[in-house]
Measured scan of single mutants.
Amino acid sequence: EVTIKANLIFANGSTQTAEFKGTFEKATSEAYAYADTLKKDNGEYTVDVADKGYTLNAKFAG
């Protein structure tokens, strides 16, 4: 089991951190699915991958 950390950075400057656990593939998929649920209210996002894929920095356009 691994933990994927998602740093969510919103256009207004606020941030949120979420963690997803499971296999690498499952946890990564859940992190992206969570970011997708936030698109409606926060706009499209881009992701910078860090820490060999164990940290995802998602920046929302607003």
Results as ranks from 00 to 15, higher is better:
13 G>L: 05
35 A>Q: 01
43 G>Y: 02
35 A>K: 00
19 E>K: 08
54 Y>T: 07
34 Y>C: 06
56 L>M: 07
51 D>S: 03
52 K>D: 15
41 D>W: 12
61 A>L: 14
10 F>R: 01
42 N>S: 07
17 T>G: 05
28 T>W: 15
17 T>E: 09
13 G>M: 05
29 S>N: 13
23 T>I: 07
2 V>E: 06
45 Y>P: 02
7 N>F: 13
19 E>C: 15
25 E>T: 09
24 F>G: 02
15 T>G: 07
31 A>E: 02
31 A>H: 00
5 K>D: 03
25 E>V: 09
9 I>D: 03
61 A>I: 12
2 V>R: 03
55 T>V: 09
28 T>N: 05
19 E>V: 14
60 F>T: 03
44 E>T: 10
6 A>D: 02
17 T>C: 13
59 K>F: 15
21 K>M: 10
39 K>I: 13
60 F>E: 03
32 Y>G: 01
40 K>R: 12
50 A>D: 11
55 T>C: 07
47 V>E: 02
25 E>F: 09
20 F>R: 00
29 S>W: 12
7 N>S: 06
43 G>N: 01
30 E>P: 01
44 E>G: 08
29 S>L: 14
55 T>W: 04
62 G>M: 07
46 T>V: 11
8 L>S: 03
51 D>E: 07
14 S>R: 11
20 F>K: 00
47 V>Y: 04
40 K>P: 11
14 S>Q: 14
28 T>Q: 09
42 N>Y: 15
16 Q>K: 11
49 V>L: 10
34 Y>A: 02
23 T>V: 08
29 S>T: 10
33 A>G: 07
41 D>Q: 11
52 K>E: 15
54 Y>A: 06
28 T>A: 05
28 T>D: 03
37 T>M: 14
24 F>W: 10
45 Y>A: 03
24 F>L: 09
53 G>F: 01
61 A>D: 13
13 G>I: 02
23 T>P: 09
49 V>I: 14
62 G>C: 10
9 I>P: 03
47 V>G: 02
52 K>N: 15
45 Y>I: 03
50 A>M: 13
25 E>I: 10
40 K>S: 10
24 F>V: 06
35 A>F: 15
1 E>S: 11
11 A>M: 08
27 A>R: 00
5 K>V: 14
11 A>K: 09
49 V>Q: 06
56 L>A: 03
39 K>P: 03
9 I>K: 07
12 N>C: 10
56 L>Q: 03
1 E>H: 12
55 T>Y: 04
38 L>T: 02
2 V>L: 06
39 K>M: 11
22 G>Y: 04
13 G>Y: 04
37 T>E: 12
41 D>H: 11
53 G>H: 01
55 T>D: 04
3 T>V: 12
1 E>R: 08
39 K>E: 05
39 K>F: 07
61 A>R: 12
26 K>Y: 10
51 D>A: 02
3 T>K: 07
15 T>L: 11
40 K>Y: 10
48 D>R: 08
32 Y>Q: 03
56 L>H: 04
56 L>N: 03
61 A>E: 14
3 T>H: 05
61 A>N: 13
21 K>A: 07
21 K>H: 14
2 V>Q: 05
47 V>F: 07
7 N>M: 09
19 E>W: 15
46 T>D: 07
28 T>F: 09
54 Y>K: 07
15 T>W: 11
12 N>I: 03
21 K>G: 05
8 L>A: 06
49 V>W: 15
42 N>H: 15
30 E>I: 06
35 A>H: 01
27 A>S: 06
34 Y>V: 02
45 Y>D: 02
12 N>M: 04
28 T>Y: 11
22 G>R: 00
20 F>H: 00
33 A>Y: 07
43 G>Q: 03
18 A>W: 13
34 Y>W: 15
